[in-house]
Amino acid sequence: KKKYVIKVYFEDTGKEVEIEAESKEEALEAAKRLAEELGLKIKKVEIYP
Rank of each mutant, 00 (worst) to 15 (best):
L38R: 08
I19V: 06
L38K: 06
V45G: 01
E46D: 10
E36Q: 14
K44E: 06
E36S: 13
E18V: 09
K3L: 14
A21Q: 02
E11D: 12
E16R: 06
V17H: 10
K43M: 11
E26W: 15
A30R: 14
K7E: 01
K2D: 02
K44I: 06
V45N: 01
R33S: 05
Y9R: 05
E22V: 08
E11M: 15
A27G: 14
F10P: 00
T13S: 13
I6K: 00
L38N: 05
K41T: 08
L34M: 13
K3M: 13
Y48E: 04
I47A: 05
Y9T: 06
V8M: 07
K44H: 12
E22S: 07
G39R: 11
T13L: 08
T13Q: 08
K41Q: 04
A21T: 09
K3N: 04
E22A: 09
K44A: 07
E18R: 05
L28R: 06
G39W: 02
E25M: 08
A31N: 00
V8P: 00
A30K: 08
I47H: 09
I47Y: 11
A27V: 10
V45W: 13
Y9G: 02
A30Q: 11
A31D: 00
E18L: 12
E37A: 15
K2R: 12
Y48G: 09
K41W: 04
E26T: 08
E37G: 13
Y48N: 11
I6A: 04
K44T: 05
S23P: 00
E46I: 11
R33E: 03
K41G: 04
G14S: 14
G39F: 05
T13P: 11
V45D: 00
S23W: 04
E46W: 12
V5M: 08
D12K: 14
E11C: 14
K44Q: 09
E22F: 11
Y4E: 01
K15I: 06
E25N: 05
E26K: 06
E20R: 07
T13R: 15
E22K: 04
I47Q: 07
I47E: 08
K24N: 11
E11P: 02
K24L: 11
E46V: 14
E20F: 06
Y48H: 11
S23H: 04
K41N: 07
A27H: 01
L38V: 08
K7A: 03
L34E: 02
P49C: 12
V5K: 14
E18H: 08
F10A: 01
Y9H: 06
A35Y: 02
V5L: 05
L38H: 04
Y9C: 03
V5P: 00
K3Q: 07
L28F: 08
K2G: 07
A21C: 04
A27Y: 02
L28A: 07
E11F: 15
E36P: 01
E26R: 10
I47R: 02
A27K: 00
E36L: 15
K7G: 01
E25H: 10
V17R: 08
D12P: 09
K1W: 10
A21I: 11
Y4R: 01
I47N: 03
K41P: 07
I47C: 05
Y48L: 11
E16C: 04
A35F: 04
E20K: 04
A30G: 10
E36A: 14
K1V: 12
K7F: 06
V17G: 04
K44P: 01
L40E: 03
K2I: 09
G14W: 14
Y48V: 11
G14R: 04
E25L: 05
V8E: 00
E26A: 14
V8A: 02
E25Q: 05
R33L: 06
A35S: 09
R33D: 04
E20Y: 13
K2S: 13
K43D: 08
Y48P: 04
Y4A: 01
V5H: 08
E29W: 15
E37D: 08
L38W: 13
T13W: 08
E20L: 09
E16D: 14
A35T: 02
I42D: 00
I19A: 03
L34Q: 03
T13I: 11
K1L: 12
A31L: 06
K43F: 13
E16Q: 06
I19T: 03
I19R: 02
G14Y: 12
V17M: 08
L34H: 06
V8G: 00
E37M: 15
P49H: 15
E29L: 15
D12S: 10
E37T: 14
L34G: 01
Y4D: 00
V5C: 02
L40V: 04
Y9Q: 04
K41E: 05
E25C: 07
G39A: 12
V8S: 00
A21N: 02
K41H: 06
K1I: 14
I47F: 08
K32Q: 10
K15R: 06
E37F: 15
I42E: 00
K15L: 07
Y4W: 09
K43T: 09
K7P: 00
V5R: 14
I19Q: 02
P49G: 12
D12L: 13
E29Q: 06
K15A: 06
E11I: 15
R33W: 14
L40Y: 15
A35P: 01
S23T: 09
G39T: 03
V5E: 01
K7N: 03
K2N: 07
A27N: 00
E22R: 05
E25Y: 09
A35Q: 03
E37H: 15
Y9V: 08
K15E: 09
E26V: 06
K15Y: 12
A31Y: 09
P49S: 14
K2H: 12
I19D: 01
E22G: 08
E18I: 14
K43E: 09
I47L: 11
L38I: 09
I6W: 14
K41L: 09
E11W: 15
K2Y: 11
A31Q: 01
K41S: 10
K15M: 05
P49A: 09
G14M: 08
K15H: 13
I42W: 04
Y9L: 07
G39P: 01
L38A: 12
E29C: 13
E16N: 11
I42N: 00
L40M: 08
Y48S: 05
I47S: 06
I42H: 01
E36H: 13
K7H: 05
E26C: 06
Y4S: 01
L34N: 02
L28M: 11
F10I: 01
F10S: 01
G39C: 06
K41F: 11
K24F: 09
T13D: 04
A35W: 05
K41I: 05
A27M: 02
I6M: 11
E22N: 10
V17T: 07
A30I: 12
A21R: 08
V8R: 00
A21W: 02
P49F: 13
A35V: 04
K3C: 06
I6P: 00
E22T: 06
P49M: 15
Y9I: 09
L38D: 01
G14D: 09
T13N: 13
S23D: 08
K43P: 01
E46L: 09
V17F: 10
G39Q: 10
E36G: 13
I47G: 04
T13V: 10
